[in-house]
């Protein structure tokens, strides 16, 4: 690596990290929170006995899981304006990513709820608890434990998937990397640098995930 490359590497570090901290991380956190809420609602609806809402929830999961996220983002950002719905790039990113997280994680949540032994339902209901009380007090707390590892995976995937929003003009870390690379003609240096920062983010998050898993194991296990 020559001096010029090293200088570019150093000069671009702060702009990249700044974009990561200001856009990539907040976008990840917001879309994961919204997506997880959507996932829990979708999972509960799919496990309920309401026919029409169930159908809608299954359709949603089927469509979102069966089509590329990039195509979904293009439809929201470039497609919707032609039917009179114009969304800015932030809204597009949040909606697109949340819908995706919601669909994938709803399957995780659904499987976690189904994995709780039916004796737990019966014990709670034999005590006079309603379905909702049983869910809230008995089933969901146990399902949350089961779903921490797969949800952690989904969360780390999301950190990386946020880079897709650069293509619909969102100035996240990847977009900044593209801009710097376009000016400096050093794609190898810049994109590797961006990759290292993504790697650092994911590593920190997996460490957190491991810590959370250990803590949950200690307080329960069965």
């Amino acid at each position: 690596m020559n001096d010029r490359q090293i200088e570019i590497l150093l000069d671009s570090f702060w702009p990249l990290l700044k974009a990561g901290v200001l856009y990539t991380i907040p976008l990840t956190l917001i879309t994961f929170a919204l997506g997880l809420t959507l996932a829990i609602i979708t999972a509960l609806v799919r496990l309920s006995s309401w026919k029409i809402p169930k159908l809608i929830a299954s359709f949603y999961v089927w469509v979102i899981r069966g089509t590329p996220l990039l195509v979904q983002l293009f439809i929201i950002f470039y497609g919707l304006p032609s039917v009179g719905i114009t969304l800015d790039v932030y809204t597009t990113a949040v909606i697109g990513l949340s819908l995706s997280v919601g669909a994938y994680c709803s399957e995780i949540v659904r499987a976690a709820i189904l994995s709780i032994h039916k004796g737990q339902w019966e014990a709670a209901q034999s005590l006079g608890m309603t379905r909702l009380q049983t869910l809230r007090r008995v089933i969901l707390p146990q399902a949350a434990r089961v779903s921490v590892p797969p949800l952690g995976n989904a969360f780390i995937s999301l950190v990386k998937d946020t880079s897709l929003v650069a293509i619909v003009t969102f100035t996240d870390m990847f977009k900044v990397a593209q801009q710097i690379s376009a000016v400096t003609y050093e794609p190898m240096v810049i994109f590797c640098e961006a990759a290292v920062i993504y790697l650092a983010f994911s590593t920190i998050l997996s460490t957190l995930q491991n810590y959370l898993e250990k803590r949950l194991e200690r307080s329960s296990a069965s």
């Binding site: 032994h117 004796g119 019966e122």
Partner: peptide, 26 residues
């Protein structure tokens, strides 16, 4: 009140929390 073959205690609650649960929620 029902007592099951496989106990079906709530594993995420202590013994006393298991016994308090229905008194508080129900």
């Amino acid at each position: 009140g029902m007592v099951f073959q496989s106990f079906n205690l709530f594993p995420h609650m202590t013994a006393i929390e298991n016994i308090m649960e229905a008194q508080v929620t129900v």
